[in-house]
Design a protein around this nucleic acid. Structure first.
Length: 260
DNA sequence: ATGTCTACTGATAGTAGA
């Protein structure tokens, strides 16, 4: 089974590239972020045509998350309780005994911006929701764009980035609090600590200079980590494909062995 | 080198957000 997460930066602008990627990589269960569309305009038919069901939690213009699946899924939670005013950023579903959630965490803008405090508060809500709702003994995954760089080697700036936006101690602390609920970063489980990134700014030629950050994660509990055989960042899909423009994020993929 | 991309608007170029 192949799990993936991808901040697509607009489902309308990315639809053809996403369809191409699905047919190329054939993931089974995918969390999408920044779909930037309302639920009743989501292109369900396009995905159904190639074998994917979607459950969405969208909004106009900004944010919005969706989950695509080849096998039937049931809605568990649409939106993070208590954080509705911060946009559509959380969605969870169940597939058999697996709880699968996806999150688009607030960016925070700048350490001095009011949104930075809101980001930390939003994370507290996420931690408390996850703590309450993921039942132990059942496989559980939360994936998405967390907008936090956990370690110096997750940033092109290395230790020089410590303390700056996305790299602050407060952000790293809330990220660690979430992980301490028993979540394991599946990418790091199967890769060395060599710098590798999932997001590169569109500006300044960042991608070609490899000035990136690793802020997109697939986090699994112990049951999932035990099944995980590989994880990778699909850097090739951060590149333009002909006329199709890329998101500023690359997909992240984790492979799980059959659970039976 | 903040050099790009997306979606929105009493739109058709300019703005905000990332």
């Amino acid at each position: 089974m192949k799990i993936a997460t991808w901040n697509v930066n607009g489902i309308r602008a990315r639809l053809e590239l996403i369809l191409l990627w699905l047919q190329d990589r054939k993931p089974d269960l995918i969390g999408l972020q920044e779909i930037k569309i309302v639920d009743n305009e989501f292109p369900h038919e396009e995905f159904e045509r190639i074998g994917y069901q979607a459950i969405t939690h969208g909004q106009k213009s900004w944010n919005g998350v969706a989950i695509l699946s080849r096998e039937p899924i049931d809605l568990v939670q649409q939106g993070l309780p208590g954080e509705e005013e911060n946009g559509s950023r959380f969605l969870s579903v169940r597939q058999n005994d697996l709880l699968f959630a996806t999150a688009y965490c607030p960016n925070g803008k700048d350490l001095k911006h009011p949104d930075y405090r809101r980001k930390l508060t939003w994370f507290k809500s996420l931690i408390s929701h996850w703590e309450t709702n993921n039942s132990s003994g059942q496989p559980a995954i939360i994936c998405g764009d967390f907008n936090i760089v956990p370690q110096p080697y997750d940033s092109w700036r290395g230790e020089a980035g410590d303390g700056t936006m996305f790299h602050s101690l407060e952000e790293r602390t809330v990220m660690k609090e979430l992980m301490d609920l028993g979540l394991i970063d599946l990418y790091r489980l199967h890769n060395s600590n060599d710098p590798n990134f999932s997001w590169w700014d569109y500006r300044g030629g960042s991608f070609h200079r490899n000035h990136g950050l690793r802020i997109d994660f697939i986090l699994g509990n112990k049951d999932i980590a035990n099944l995980c055989t590989n994880a990778l960042i699909d850097r090739d899909y951060r590149k333009k494909k002909g006329e199709l423009t890329a998101s500023d994020h690359a997909p992240v993929i984790a492979e799980l062995s059959a659970n039976d």
